[in-house]
Computed example of a mutant assay.
Amino acid sequence: MRAFLVVPALAAVLLSSCSEAQTNQPGNSALTAPTDQTVPNQKKGKKGKKDKASDIANLTKVGKMREVPESSGLALTGENGTFYTHGDDGNPPILYKINTQGEVLSRIEIPAKSHDWESISRDQVGNVYIGDVGNNNNNRKNLVLLRLNPLNPQIVQEIHLKYPDQSEFPPGKKDRNFDCEATLWHDGQVYLFTKDRGRSATSKVYTVPDQPGNYTAKLLTKLAIPGQVTDAALSPDGRRLVLLGREEMFVFEGENLAAMLKAQPRQISLKGAGQTEGAVFTTDQTLYISTEQGSLYEYQFE
């Protein structure tokens, strides 16, 4: 009797051992893994990229110009909360009226050619001056400022200009300092600030009268600017001048514009803001800045 009882018991032990061995074999993990087990090395969704400009002190992104191709300048319209802007080289001759969020309120077609519009400024009676003075290769002989009132855009007057110190078109590469992306109107004159493509060290300042005609620009001074100037803006009280650069700006302060052009500028980094191209003051402390990528910023001076 005992012999017959041992055999069934031994068989049960052998079957149990065999079953345990099978559940621990590679390829059978599904049998032992719990249903809520986390799969290792599973990729998580990408987090949203942080806006680099958010780290810049006193700078706030306020809008996006989705309908403006490569904004290259800013000017006041005379109506609170609105600006004029325009596209860069290769875009149609259109002025865009936008609000402080970058939304297009209207489009104004200008009956003039757009060789390389780079800047826009406004005088005290509502005329705007569009700087068709972009000169990347320093070889243009048809530089012109377009003078018009946006309320009557069919009448366009031209201010043709040449530089008194340019005799080669183009000059040698290191001497290519006849491109201009920055202009501003002040006291009956249009000021032009050059973009030094040769050495990125000097911005020359020229003036021409704000009346239509043909002029040899007057060279006022040369500013030591360690960069390339892309726009200029003067505060309403005339005591602060900003020269915008690529992701930076140079701030001059003084009793008047003549004094500021002799002052040492303060350099402020705008790293992360994008290709900063347009600037205009709305108050003595508030500066709006546009980028070629379409961002619109507000900078508050302390």
Rank of each mutant, 00 (worst) to 15 (best):
K222E: 09
L5V: 08
L14C: 11
N28L: 14
G48Y: 06
M65N: 01
T100Y: 00
Q275S: 07
T194E: 00
Q25R: 11
L148N: 09
Y206E: 04
A21V: 11
G227W: 14
N149F: 15
G254I: 02
Y96C: 03
P40L: 03
N137Q: 11
E255V: 13
G126E: 00
V128I: 10
V280I: 11
R122M: 07
T32H: 12
S19Q: 15
N99F: 01
V104N: 01
Q267W: 08
G78A: 06
V13I: 13
V144G: 10
G126I: 02
A11P: 03
D175G: 02
N149M: 07
S72C: 14
H186Q: 11
Q101A: 09
K204H: 00
K262C: 04
G274P: 00
S269E: 12
P170R: 03
K61I: 04
R2V: 15
T282D: 07
N214A: 05
R147P: 12
N149Q: 01
T286N: 02
A182P: 11
D237F: 08
Y299T: 03
V280P: 07
H86L: 14
L74Q: 13
N256M: 01
R197M: 06
N99M: 00
E109C: 05
R140Q: 07
W185N: 02
G131V: 09
A21S: 13
